[in-house]
């Protein structure tokens, strides 16, 4: 972060980072997201849960306008980050995505060295004045990604040569290297084994101190473990949104209840 808004501790807990108003998404003829309204807090981990095809990933991809890359996708409604509409005509999605980083379902390191993978974002956004600054950013990001100790001796090795869990942490390091304010994670652990999953979850918890994290997950246990807030999506609707403990212990909606107890999903 360049200069995080410092508004005192009391405010910090209630700062709304992202707010969505009447968001609708159409994929061609399919109505994928129906009228979603949600406020996502800063420096919190928010989990999106729900059965497959419920639109949680689609909504996540709206937040950094990744859906722009799909021709047939149409988004209406407003999504505001820090009060600014990201679908405003003046917004350049390229600039937005530097501010809203994303980690994908499958680890997708570029076929480049570990160093170049992490340095890619800072390079294209011009975040480093010189080589030594870049080195610093790379080291800092890899440390934030909790992978520095494992790769510091082989920064020139290809990123594709790492194990699955390491690759995903590398991708997280790559995402935080552009100093985003929001970090979107689309089922970041679904391709990982339990041990790697545990490491990544631990990392997500640490990231909370600096970023607003939004994570889409299939696993309710994971949502319960890492998130403070949880949103439940069903058939394109945001059914329920609230504190994670409340959602899991005392859901208000019957559909949420059914999903939590395994009756739908």
């Amino acid at each position: 972060m360049y200069d995080a808004p410092q508004l005192g501790n009391a405010m910090d807990q209630t700062t709304t980072k992202i707010s969505a108003r009447n968001v609708q998404v159409h994929y061609g003829d399919t109505h994928a997201i129906k009228d979603v309204n949600v406020d996502i807090d800063a420096k919190t981990v928010t989990a999106f849960i729900g059965p497959s095809g419920c639109g949680k990933s689609t909504f996540l991809r709206c937040i950094n306008r990744m859906n722009d890359t799909i021709d047939i996708c149409r988004v209406t409604g407003d999504i505001l980050i820090d009060g600014e509409d990201i679908y405003d005509k003046r917004v350049d999605p390229v600039q937005l995505r530097a501010k809203v980083g994303m980690v994908f379902q499958k680890p997708n390191p570029f076929p480049k060295s570990i160093y170049d993978n992490v340095a890619y974002g800072p390079r294209i956004h011009g975040l480093a004045k010189n080589k030594s600054e870049l080195d610093e950013i790379v080291e800092k990001s890899l440390r934030r990604g909790a992978i520095w100790d494992e790769v510091k001796d082989r920064l020139d090795a290809p990123g594709t040569g790492l194990s699955g869990g390491q690759q995903q942490r590398l991708c997280i390091a790559r995402a935080v290297a552009t100093e985003p304010e929001v970090l979107l994670m689309d089922e970041p652990c679904s391709a990982l084994d339990p041990i790697a999953t545990a490491q990544v979850e631990e990392l997500i918890d640490e990231l909370r101190s600096q970023f607003s994290v939004v994570i889409v997950t299939h696993s309710m246990q994971q949502a319960a473990r890492v998130s403070q807030k949880t949103a439940f999506f069903h058939l394109g609707n945001l059914v329920e949104f609230g504190d994670t403990t409340q959602i899991f212990t005392n859901p208000q909606d019957e559909r949420t209840q059914n999903y939590i107890t395994g009756r739908i999903g």
């Binding site: 890359t69 600039q95 995505r97 570029f110 076929p111 480049k112 294209i124 991708c171 552009t178």
Partner: peptide, 27 residues
Amino acid sequence: VPQSMRDGSYGLGATQSETVKQVILPA
């Protein structure tokens, strides 16, 4: 070249030409 490479690059805020030049063509 898998779509995930493109996603990774766009997700970091790269433009299409940057993605082509720095990710897709090298791959």
